[in-house]
Design a protein around this nucleic acid. Sequence first.
RNA 1: GCCCCCAUCGACCAGCGGCCUAGGUCUCCACCCUUUCAAGGUGGCAACACGGGUUCGAAUCCCGUUGGGGGCACCA
Length: 489
Amino acid sequence: MSDDVRVRAAPAPSGSLHVGNVRTFLYNWLHARHTGGKFVLRIEDTDTSRFTEEAYHAVLEDLRWLELDWDEGPEVEGPHAPYRQSQRTDLHKRAAEQLLADGAAYRCYCTKQELDERRQQAMAEKRRPGYDGRCSRLTAGQIEAFEAEGRASVVRVRVPNVGQSTYEDLVIGEVKTDLEQIDDFAIVRSDGAPLYHLAVVVDDGMMQINHVIRGDDLLSNTPKQILLHAALGNPVPRFGHLPQVLGPDRKPLGKRHGSTSIADFREAGYLPDALVNFLALLGWGTADDTIMNREDLIARFKIGDVHPSPAMFDTKKLDWMNGEYIRLLSDDELTRLVTPFYLKAGLIGESPSPQEQAKIEAATPLIKTRIRRLDEASALVRGLFGRVDIDQQAGAKVLGADHVGELFTRTTQALGAVQPWDKENVEAALRAVAEEMGLKPRTAFAPFYVAVSGSTVSAPVFDLMTLIGRDECLARIALAQEFSRALQA
RNA sequence: GCCCCCAUCGACCAGCGGCCUAGGUCUCCACCCUUUCAAGGUGGCAACACGGGUUCGAAUCCCGUUGGGGGCACCA
């Protein structure tokens, strides 16, 4: 039982999750699923001023969208509830009292101002700017005097200043820290609010988390947490530190890199499976396989194989991979997924008519190999849902050619005779005209792309023409004919 | 200033002392296919940061340099 892996994700709810954090959660999730352990979700919402209920729900929604399911946590609950840190402060305070009683911690009466001054002085003298531990040496009389004075105090942990803290990191390997480098850190604020290190350690301990996998920005804090676990009498969990996810400028991925939240990726038309696959490969990989579904990932992922060096978030590869996943979709699935994007692009209304619905479905096989993100689809099939203004550049480039007038005239005649109006016949008619005029296919058909789609880039034109019908086709060709004449004049 | 972590093609990974003439994927380039754009197929360019060791043998182990990142809070 106690051998079962228990990991956790501990997001601070500040809106839609950032891809870097998601990668961390994913690795926790994969580690839990690979080992048959439990994945716990705990919301670290202690800083109530910064976090909203809305942001909290956004986090849960992101995880659900990504299909990273949690075994214990908000809404599913579990034996270690509550799973919101803000509801656990009493537990944290009690732990602090215990540490105080055991002598593992002490009250520090230095004021914020005093600490700031000393820190600045230390910096000026090029010394390490940490706390010097003076309140740990207070006499009973001095403490009494401070208390009588009504001085506020923080609670600090006594950290020995000799010796080393050593642990075996799951991804980095052995990590040694001289305890001299760690000063007596605060665990409770002067207003009584428990601080981060206390809260995590207490919660991880009570929730029996035995593998802590997190970003390496917490690496140098790990000895503190190991100390705290020991002081609290907890079994010390194993730690694994994941390197940063970098932006294209090789700086840690952040807000200034633009759209990096899960909500952004969802809106741009990335699929959760693609994102999961891609993120899994950011810091880990196999010799041969790139496209791996969740089962593959779970089967092959080993936390010990994670690369200890930082990885750059490369959108190009994500785009490619997303395209691969789109092509893996059935037509029905793809239709269902792109429809909201057509709505957003204004191609269709809230509740499409049967005719519109038929077009939506007919468009799917036409876009499937042509998009890498769902939001790219509407541009390719816009002409299917209504007339599109001719793009000036495309028009000038294609419709200005000498053969265009005759091509349009002859084609109009040919299309008038097509019977029945289906793709084979439409295509045959156009090819026949091209051949009569001795035109290469690409020069013969380009004008029709512009006439029908307004652009030279779109879904295949024979399909579009067939779908919009003869009358509409002839009308658009007539319009393009005018455009062409205007150019000649 | 002090401490810690990291270092293979442009990018992501493989490599755990000989299988390495360093492999795969994305990107890029060329060609093929082709109604545009894609998709698909074939081929190509491209890397062990540097310097010292250890060893019969090093991309792999050790040390240093350089470069990148993180930390040193009554933030998380």
